[in-house]
């Protein structure tokens, strides 16, 4: 299998996994799920680190570092705010407390 075909295969299968895995979400979890998914695409931080790490001139370095800051905000802020939203659920349902570390 050629390399582009491998990538296409991963892409298509990931689409189906992404659709399937959230298809039974309850209405109350719509916003936390959106927020959690938002945090996951903060993984662009890996890409930002790669391009900045290979920057050849000052311009590339500066813009790379800006991308690193933005992606870190997306990733870290995203996971923290999702956790805060979900704390509201755990307070109402103490049973779920055993799942957390706090």
């Amino acid at each position: 299998m050629s390399e582009p075909m491998v990538w296409l295969t991963i892409f298509v299968l990931s689409i189906f996994v992404g659709i399937e895995v959230i298809s039974k979400v309850s209405t109350t979890l719509h916003t936390p799920l959106m927020s959690g998914a938002n945090a996951i695409h903060g993984i662009i931080l890996v890409g930002a680190i790669l391009v900045t790490g290979f920057a050849h001139n000052t311009g590339q370095l500066i813009f790379g570092l800006i991308a690193v800051v933005l992606a870190s905000i997306n990733m870290v802020g995203g996971f923290v705010v999702t956790d805060r939203m979900l704390q509201m659920f755990t307070r109402r349902k103490p049973r779920a407390k055993e799942l957390t570390h706090e």
């Binding site: 991963i10 689409i15 189906f16 992404g18 959106m34 998914a37 938002n38 695409h41």
Partner: peptide, 15 residues
């Protein structure tokens, strides 16, 4: 990046 991004793209569309 490919898998993470695609998962969010697909599940975000359905959501």
């Amino acid at each position: 990046l490919l898998v993470g991004g695609t998962l969010v793209g697909a599940s975000g569309t359905i959501l």
